[in-house]
Design a protein around this nucleic acid. Structure first.
Length: 571
DNA sequence: GCCGTTTTCGGCCCGACTGTTTTCAGTCG
């Protein structure tokens, strides 16, 4: 089983236990294990195959979970899971995904009304049977009915870039409040996650009512879910929830820290506070009810002798270990990027000409770019054959004679063919300055086959990098089943680079995979895959993910001048 | 189920809001 499959089993077990009303900390242990396994830098099989290593060395994995992981890896299932499924039908887990329904209420519905599915739940609500139950009432029944609509509406997380649009619009809207003193977004948006479930906004204001009224008047608001003295939640017509918190100025840093999360990061932080006789909540850091810090995040972290972690690192992955060892990475920044090595022009499926792309790159301060139009196999995009490609390269030579301050590299995005091999001959590729190889067809092939195609491409001496190495499209398409461990090792051996594609729907390699590539000593190249002039501005999305992976300037190949890049890949 | 500068048992982060409860449980983040 892959790490992701093992993680999914633990998540399912956690749901099932939750439903049964099991000890919340036991449930948490399974959820933590799911996350830990999902975030690992190497496969479980690799660790199991190494006699010098034990799964229990992994934080949060004890004897019991280690045995369960080994069983899963060996047999693909767990007796415990089957036993749980015999007690709780899998279909009732859907009840837990209805907003407002937690394990207790869901279990009551299942046990007392024999409800096994969302459809049965809807019928029971419409027949007003739910409001008869103890602990339920008319309001609860209505809330469930409304929640069913949401659960049915294929609720997806927004891409970070989409959330950013809403966020900036909301901030601008709220800044019109006269009473507003401070405002900041928090949550997974601030941590730069590739997708965002909802938006958290913090404000300091002398008049909470004014700010809440103003939020309610935002054009996109569909309903007000809750409104109290300090907290308000609304749902936008797009289905996106926005939570507003109004806090006093002396608590702003504590609240920002608290609501930025992640949840797991905060659990670790609060545990550390407790060990020092301190208490941290969204109002500040307290010793014996005595406020000692909270105005800024720096102040809050300083009470625990911790640095103010960049939000992108706050995932309880490695940041606390790094801080303790004094090795917190200095994260890469967008202004350190010198070149963009993946973009298209009107020669294939781009919207801008070669000259326009070069002018736009120059205007953005880039020192070099590679034009990497598709190869002929990508017929839909009017992919180039050898003749057309060489014609484009001749144009690039002429362009370079005129250009000052920017070098345009003769590149190509060569397709890795379904049957293996590349879509252009080696003698053509040999004349390129930069070659990215990528899979567009045969994405559903079995693991061995698709992995071999990519490994062969890496071994080709003319290939510089593999573009979007897993092919995922957020909310739309799963990554292909490629053995990334093998890809990292091959890239290391052949001195090749792996791309972090900045397109907001790709962001592939993702943060976890980028961190793993770094562990393997493989540099990442952050590219835009721009299909237009504006596409060049997507770089910031890629930078955010690289930062989440803990990458520094040195880990990102295209922070170097082109001459050094060439040496890095031995070309 | 995990874990240990409270160490093999007894903790495990903390508070706002809602609804149904007449003092609090459930859910959420």
């Amino acid at each position: 089983m892959t790490n992701a499959q093992i993680a999914a089993v633990f998540e399912e077990i956690a749901d099932l236990l939750d439903f049964q009303g099991a000890n919340a900390f036991r449930v948490r242990a399974y959820r933590n294990a799911a996350r830990t396994v999902g975030d690992l830098h190497e496969t479980i099989d690799t660790i199991l195959a190494d006699p010098n290593r034990k799964l229990t060395d992994i934080d949060g994995i004890g004897d019991d979970l280690a045995a369960k992981i080994a069983t899963l890896a060996r047999t693909g299932d767990l007796p415990m899971r089957q036993e749980l499924l015999a007690e709780v039908p899998e279909s009732v887990l859907a009840l837990l995904r209805v907003p407002g329904l937690g394990p207790k209420k869901a279990a009551a519905l299942h046990k007392q009304l024999k409800i096994n599915s969302l459809d049965e739940l809807r019928e029971a609500c419409l027949a007003h049977r739910v409001q008869e139950l103890k602990g339920f009432g008319v309001k609860t029944e209505q809330t469930i009915l409304a929640g069913l609509e949401i659960a049915g509406a294929a609720q997806e997380r927004l891409l970070w870039a989409e959330a950013d649009d809403y966020c900036q619009a909301l901030l601008t809207h709220l800044r019109a409040c006269r009473s507003l003193e401070q405002i900041a977004p928090a949550g997974s948006y601030r941590r730069g996650r590739d997708t965002v479930g909802d938006l958290d906004i913090l404000v300091v204001s002398s008049d909470a009512g004014e700010v809440m009224d103003r939020l309610g008047a935002f054009a996109g608001v569909a309903d007000v879910l809750a409104r109290g003295d300090t907290k308000m939640s609304v749902r936008l017509a797009a289905g996106f929830q926005v939570d507003l918190r109004v806090v006093p100025a002396e608590s702003f840093g504590a609240a920002l820290q608290y609501f930025t999360g992640s949840k797991q990061h905060n659990v670790v932080l609060r545990g550390r506070a407790k060990a020092r006789g301190l208490k941290i909540n969204e109002y500040g850091v307290f010793r014996d009810e005595q406020y000692i810090a909270g105005r800024t995040e720096e102040e809050v972290y300083a009470t625990l002798d911790l640095p103010c972690f960049p939000p992108e690192l706050r995932e309880a992955r490695r940041e606390f270990d790094w801080a303790e060892a004094g090795e917190l990475p200095v994260l890469v920044e967008q202004n350190q990027i010198q070149g963009d090595l993946h973009m298209h022009t009107t020669a294939t499926d781009g919207a801008a000409t070669l000259d326009e792309m070069a002018a736009a790159a120059l205007a953005r301060g880039l020192k070099y770019i590679a034009i990497t139009d598709h190869s002929k196999r990508v017929t839909m995009a009017n992919g180039l054959d050898a003749t057309k490609l060489r014609r484009q390269w001749a144009e690039i030579d002429k362009l370079n004679e005129r250009l000052k301050g920017l070098v345009v590299l003769k590149g190509v995005e060569v397709d890795i063919l379904e049957k293996g091999g590349l879509d252009l001959d080696d003698d053509v590729l040999a004349d390129a300055d930069w070659v990215v190889a990528s899979v567009h067809y045969g994405q559903n092939q079995p693991r061995e086959q698709i992995t071999k195609r990519i490994l062969d491409a890496i071994a080709n001496p003319h290939v510089s990098a593999i573009a979007h190495p897993t092919g995922r499209l957020l909310n739309r398409r799963k990554p292909y089943d490629v053995d990334l461990d093998a890809v990292f090792q091959a890239a290391r051996t052949h001195r090749k680079l792996l791309e972090l594609n900045s397109h907001p729907q790709r962001l592939d390699l993702d943060d976890v995979a980028c961190a793993a590539a770094k562990q393997h000593g493989v540099p990442i190249v952050i590219s835009t895959d721009a299909h237009s002039v504006d596409g060049l501005d997507k770089l910031r999305y890629g930078i955010l993910q690289a930062r989440r992976a803990g990458l520094t300037k040195a880990d990102v190949a295209n922070t170097r001048p082109w001459a050094e890049m060439r040496k890095l890949i031995g070309q």
